[in-house]
């Protein structure tokens, strides 16, 4: 059985149930957690940028305009392209279009 994963938004303390086969954004949308702006859901628009404070994850392809190599070092990802592999603590990064 799939292990239950938990995501925590640092700012609000709200917890979300995560799934390995859903992106962080999908999991938050599914639980109606309104902590991240939802844009294209395809790694293109940059609206759902977050910093992963702790936890294991994998990422899909993301627009180089919004995620620079430096971002990846800092743990900055687009939530729509972030797939949790453990419990995640994250912080929403406000972009200029938010």
């Amino acid at each position: 059985m799939e292990e239950k994963l938990i995501g925590v938004d640092v700012e609000t303390g709200i917890e979300f149930q995560l799934h390995e086969n859903l992106s962080l954004l999908q999991a938050i949308e599914k639980s109606r957690g309104n902590v991240i702006k939802v844009g294209c859901r395809g790694g293109g628009c940059g609206l759902c940028k977050v910093r992963i404070v702790s936890g294991e994850y994998e990422v899909g392809k993301m627009s180089a305009k919004h995620i620079l190599p430096k971002d990846l070092e800092l743990g900055n990802v687009l939530a729509c392209r972030c797939f949790p592999r453990g419990n995640i603590v994250f912080k929403v990064i406000k972009t200029k279009r938010c």
């Binding site: 294209c40 859901r41 395809g42 293109g44 627009s63």
Partner: peptide
């Protein structure tokens, strides 16, 4: 809707 890369 959006394509898989986020283009509308």
């Amino acid at each position: 809707f959006f394509d898989p890369s986020g283009n509308r």
